[in-house]
Nucleic acid binder design. Structure first.
Lengths: 192, 192
DNA sequence: CGGTAATTTCAGGAATTACTGAAATTAGGA
DNA sequence: TCCTAATTTCAGTAATTCCTGAAATTACCG
């Protein structure tokens, strides 16, 4: 790999990170390289830069494509495929989140939904089912939040993130602001 | 594995999920089993239930312990170690988030911080550095939000999640609210 | 302490996953 | 259409990760 050190470090790091995830090293490195390229790059350039075989790169690109993480481009006068990552990094984040939802969360929810409907045959199963119900509720909550958020424009989302927990203070305050209750603090309690 | 089907399905599912993550199948299954158990269970029970060797279970438990995901307990009159997951599922979520921050996000930030300070030697590196800067900014933003959120009590956090994107409307409105109290019709609805 | 139950370590084999080169396929251009 | 460059597939091998049983260690009890 004869890459400039700045780029090489990043690429190696994402190779490592990829392998901590389900993604393999090669694929992580390929994506890192594409992400850092100003122009779309072709498979041979990737082979050259990372020292992988052509077929390995081909498989890696296919994988990245199945995740919707790369765009295929054709440069004029060159019939090779060239690959690029979206310019907007938020688009990448959204794609990742969406794919993980489809691939990991949905199947889990399906399994939990079925489990929760089952008829427990023993105390043991009854308890287990309760645990699954808790998990199901939690994931549903996170997903409904996520769907809300996913719809927002990036600029708004960034503002919201910057607000962090302060947003909650606002939320707590709203009743006072609108309803002008006698200055009493109200507490909500809804354990299910 | 002679587990009730309800439990077996869940355990197998989390084995699969584990392996999509960096976590291996065995560890995923062990944790699933512990999570579903009403009482703390010991290593032999895990071997028995899942059909793994004693040493494999030992390594799995060690791994889970290093993630802070299991509690070791000692039952009176029994000198074997027993393992349990926290009763509160939110505690599990928080632990997972925190560990991933430590293990994946922090190292990435360290790498990016260094890269951003580097002196780019070419146009290529300059562009790459810009991309890294974007990524760095994004992760910093997500992390500052995460830290804010992590501090909140669960009850509050749940409320905030239930609000979803509506919280943003509140935020947009806040300036108006303070100045013009009650000019417009306002409705808020947040029961879950 | 000595004895034993419980747990951990670890070397080696089993299983899985990753990678390659050769062959097959696809697609653009004449 | 044929020719050729580009890409993909795939069977075999390399590399890695996982799992086991045996041995070592640890921890409890008298």
């Amino acid at each position: 790999m004869a890459l400039p050190p700045l780029i090489a470090d990043f690429v190696l790091h994402f190779g490592e990170m990829g392998s901590r995830w389900g993604i393999n090293r090669t694929v992580g490195q390929i994506y890192a390289l594409i992400y850092l390229s100003e122009k779309p790059i072709n498979a041979d350039e990737i082979c050259e830069a990372l020292g992988f075989s052509r077929s390995n790169v081909s498989m890696g690109l296919k994988e990245l494509d199945s995740w919707g993480l790369v765009r295929m481009r054709h440069l004029p006068g060159d019939r090779r495929d060239h690959f690029a990552a979206p310019d907007d990094i938020w688009e990448i984040v959204r794609t990742l989140a969406e794919q993980r939802r489809r691939r990991e969360i949905e199947p889990t929810l399906t399994m939990l939904r079925a489990a929760v409907l089952e008829n427990p045959a023993s105390t043991e199963e009854k308890f287990a089912q309760g645990r699954m119900r808790e998990m199901h509720t939690l994931i549903e909550l996170l997903m409904s939040w996520y769907e809300d958020i996913q719809k927002m424009e990036t600029e708004r989302l960034v503002n919201l993130l910057k607000m962090g927990a302060r947003v909650y203070k606002l939320y707590e305050m709203k009743d006072k602001l609108f309803v002008v209750k006698g200055g009493k603090k109200q507490k909500e309690n809804d354990n299910g």
